[in-house]
C-alpha cells in the first residue's frame, strides 16, 4: 500500500499545494504556477496564473508566531546519505534533554526515509491532535519529536511525494505542531540540497536559524557532497556552526588496533575544514554499538558513558553549546 494521502483527515491542508492539485503541480508559489503543462485543466489554473499566489507564503506569519517560543533552532545537514545525521541529531536531542530544565524538540523533515522514530525508540507511536495543534510524540517529558513516520499506517509504506507536497508537510510541521516553549529545536534533514532544505531555510528565515551542523564521513565521496552543502548554507545565509566527522577510525575489538574503514584519501574533514574556514567540531570513531543502539532506539551516550565515542560526542555537544552562547 502506498500512502500518498496520509494526512487528509488530520488537520488543515497545506496551503502551498491544494489537495486537488494535479500530480505535477509546480507549487502555487512557483514561477511556473498556472503556466506549466501540468496546470492545464486544473481548477485553480487561473488563480495561479494571475500571480496572486506568488506573494509571500500565507503560512509564514503562522510559522513565525509558532517559532517565537523556540529559543534556538539548529539544523543538522549533510550532502551525503548514511553518514549519521539522524543518529547525531538524536544524540544531540538526548544530550540537551539530559538537563530536566531544558525543553528540546526534534523535527524530522526526511519525508521519504524517516529514521528518527526508530532511533529514538518511538516507531510505533502516533500523532495526536488537540485544539492547539498536532502534539509531538514525547520520548521523555522534555523531548518532543515530530516525524512523518508517526503518520504512516505502516512503516513499510513508501511516501512517494514530489517536492510541493513535501514542502506543504514541512510548513505544517512548523506551524501546526504544538511545540510549546522550547529551548532547542533540532531539525534533521534528508541528504542532498533540494526542496526540503530550501523550504526549511525559507520558512525559518524570519524566525532565524541559529546554526547548521554538517555531518560527514572521512572519504572524498562524502566530502564532495559536504562542500556542496557548505556552498548551499552560504547561498541561503545559514550560519555554519561546524563539521562533525563520523565513522572516523575503527578500533578492532580483537587486537585493539585502529584502522580507517573509510580512508580520508583527501585529508578527511580536517583538511576540508581548513580549506573552507569551517570549524571542525570533532571526530567520532566508528563504534558498532552506536548503530546497534540506533536500531534498538536507545541512547548510546547513556548506555556506554565511558566509551571514546561518547566522550567525542560530549565534547562536540559542549562546543556547540559554547558556539550558541549557552
Amino acid at each position: 500500500m502506498i500512502a500518498t494521502q496520509v494526512m487528509t483527515s488530520q488537520g488543515p491542508n497545506p496551503l502551498a499545494v491544494p489537495d486537488n492539485a494535479p500530480e505535477h503541480c509546480p507549487g502555487t508559489d512557483s514561477q511556473d504556477a498556472g503556466k506549466a503543462s501540468a496546470c492545464a485543466g486544473c481548477a485553480n489554473q487561473e488563480i495561479c496564473a494571475s500571480g496572486k499566489t506568488k506573494g509571500p507564503d500565507p503560512a509564514l506569519p503562522f510559522i513565525k508566531e509558532r517559532m517565537s517560543t523556540v529559543r534556538r533552532k539548529i539544523v543538522v545537514l549533510s550532502g551525503k546519505g548514511g553518514v549519521g545525521k539522524s543518529t547525531f541529531a538524536a544524540q544531540l536531542g538526548w544530550a540537551f534533554a539530559a538537563d530536566e530544565q531544558t525543553q528540546t524538540g526534534i523535527m524530522d523533515v526526511d519525508i521519504c526515509g524517516p529514521s528518527i522514530p526508530t532511533i529514538l525508540g518511538i516507531a510505533s507511536e502516533q500523532v495526536h491532535i488537540s485544539s492547539t495543534g498536532w502534539s509531538p510524540v514525547y520520548v521523555q517529558d522534555n523531548l518532543g519529536v515530530m516525524s512523518v513516520g508517526f503518520m504512516l499506517p505502516s512503516s513499510r509504506d513508501a511516501v512517494m511525494w514530489r517536492g510541493p507536497k513535501k514542502n506543504g508537510l514541512i510548513s505544517q510541521f512548523l506551524k501546526d505542531v504544538d511545540w510549546g516553549d522550547l529551548d532547542y529545536l533540532i531539525v534533521d534533514t534528508p541528504p542532498g540540497t533540494s526542496d526540503e532544505h530550501m523550504s526549511i531555510a525559507q520558512y525559518l528565515k524570519e524566525s532565524g536559524i541559529d546554526g547548521a551542523i554538517l555531518v560527514t564521513t572521512p572519504q572524498e565521496v562524502a566530502l564532495q557532497d559536504v562542500r556542496r552543502e557548505i556552498s548551499f548554507c552560504r547561498k541561503v545565509g545559514i550560519r555554519i556552526l561546524g563539521l562533525v566527522e563520523n565513522m572516523s577510525g575503527f578500533v578492532c575489538p580483537n587486537c585493539k588496533t585502529e584502522s580507517q574503514v573509510f580512508k580520508p584519501s583527501t585529508g578527511g574533514a580536517s583538511a576540508l575544514a581548513k580549506l573552507t574556514g569551517v570549524e571542525l567540531l570533532g571526530t567520532v570513531p566508528l563504534d558498532p554499538r552506536i548503530g546497534k543502539c540506533a536500531d534498538h532506539g536507545s541512547s548510546f551516550i547513556d548506555e556506554y558513558p565511558d566509551s571514546p565515542a561518547t566522550i567525542a560526542y560530549m565534547n562536540i555537544i559542549d562546543r556547540i553549546k559554547k558556539l550558541l552562547d549557552d
Binding site: P26, G163, T193, S194, M198, R228, S231, F232, K235
Partner: peptide, 8 residues
C-alpha cells in the same frame, strides 16, 4: 558548486 533545485 551546489545544485539547489526543486522538483520541476
Amino acid at each position: 558548486d551546489s545544485v539547489v533545485w526543486r522538483g520541476p
